[in-house]
Design a binder for these strands. Structure first.
Lengths: 233, 233
DNA sequence: ACCTGAACACCGTTCAAGT
DNA sequence: ACCTGAACACCGTTCAAGT
């Protein structure tokens, strides 16, 4: 419920140094590890959404006994936190200084990549605002802040600028991810709207629930925001 | 999971015309009704969040037998849909034509009221993008579309404009609602950040996780978006 | 038409126990 | 150190039954 920030490092071993790097003997599954757990959790989430992730199923998919997971993670919440952050890694443009003229492109690239990463894992966008801020998420925020700062945003305005962009990306992606899953539903909804009433003529005329250029709308809105946040000279 | 649009009118009676308007005899509870169910659901959600709403608890709070609810609603999903929409009613400015110069104020008023309504019920913002579009939500979208249209937005751009504003409001409110619940957590997170690393100097310097003027930032970003969507002459 | 309790099929998590 | 099954305390929902 609460937004717990900071690192996601648990009390349990993140790495074991002594163990041979997972030598697979026979057809048996490799040993459990946080990496394997997270990777499989992402697969299940991709396949069946947030509700599709159950601890028992996750263990089963890993070929492990039902309750083995609880040695590696504290609870299901932690699985969500780790899966979310694992999906948001950013390999951006080279980390060396961004030339003055390039800041706008750098921001666009990072935010569009962010959105694309989340749309590849449609469960992730709705999770992001409620969960812990893992290292990959913090990396993106740090990068965003640095670029904006380099682009000339005053320190006093920096938080406002970062959060405005965050809010916009989150909102656009959550909406898109949810509507994306249900083209049929949306068509049906638009149908029902037409039937339902003359109370919503504008929505109906605009066919609000259909035929949207989400990607274009996203870029346009982002342009507007950036124009406002960092006026072009 | 899917965004089911359209009305939320179930197959069950929305109103009973014949029954006396709920004459309460003695200390006994009035009869169950969708209205009472929804009102109590909102109370529980306000008190304990999305996870705090359980069908048994809801029935108990209504003084009804555990399973009586299922005659009135199909399932828990429907309770969410109804509770959400019930919280988003808009009594806006008088419905007569808005003068040309007033459109910006009208949009601001409606969207700030929307955000405020959701912040009063912090569970509602995260629910909005995933649930059915009830009549109150559709009303707001209709109104938004009408004002934008009157303000001069071309039909071809109308959907993009509506969704941009929707996305921004949703994103801003979800973020705010979640961070709002946990001032202590955020302070702790910022602490941990400082400890954690020199990897996030910008975030740390800006104290991103603290001291934010959320309301001001919301208005500012909204201004930028509107400037872009409907250029001032 | 409206309400009810018992019962079913789950779930997350704890715990004492194994190796 | 790592894994396990049995068991607990829940849930949403169905159903046959009441009035």
């Amino acid at each position: 419920m609460a937004a717990k920030g900071g690192g996601a490092q648990g009390k349990r071993p993140q790495r074991r140094v002594e163990s041979v790097p997972s030598v697979q003997q026979g057809g048996s599954e490799p040993a459990l590890s946080i990496e394997r757990i997270v990777a499989t959790a992402v697969e299940l989430l991709d396949a069946d959404g947030v509700d599709g992730l159950k601890m028992r199923r996750l263990a089963e998919s890993l070929g492990a006994g039902a309750m083995s997971l609880y040695w590696h993670v504290d609870n299901k919440e932690e699985v969500f936190d780790l899966a979310l952050d694992s999906v948001l890694e950013y390999r951006g443009p080279p980390p060396r200084g961004i030339e003055a003229a390039e800041w706008r492109g750098a921001i666009f690239h990072m935010l569009e990549d962010w959105r694309a990463s989340m749309l590849r894992h449609p469960w992730s966008a709705s999770l992001l605002p409620r969960r812990a801020l893992g290292p990959n998420i913090l990396n993106r925020l740090e990068l965003l802040g640095r670029i904006l700062s380099d682009a000339g945003v005053a320190d006093a305005d920096l938080n406002g600028a970062i959060w405005s962009l965050w809010n916009y990306v989150i909102g656009a992606t959550i909406t898109r991810a949810n509507f994306d899953l249900s083209d049929d539903d949306m068509a049906a909804a638009q149908q029902r709207l037409a039937h339902l009433s003359e109370k919503y003529p504008t929505i109906e005329r605009a066919r609000l629930l259909l035929d949207n250029d989400w990607d274009g709308a996203f870029r346009k809105g982002l342009d507007f925001l950036l124009d406002g946040l960092v006026p072009r000279q």
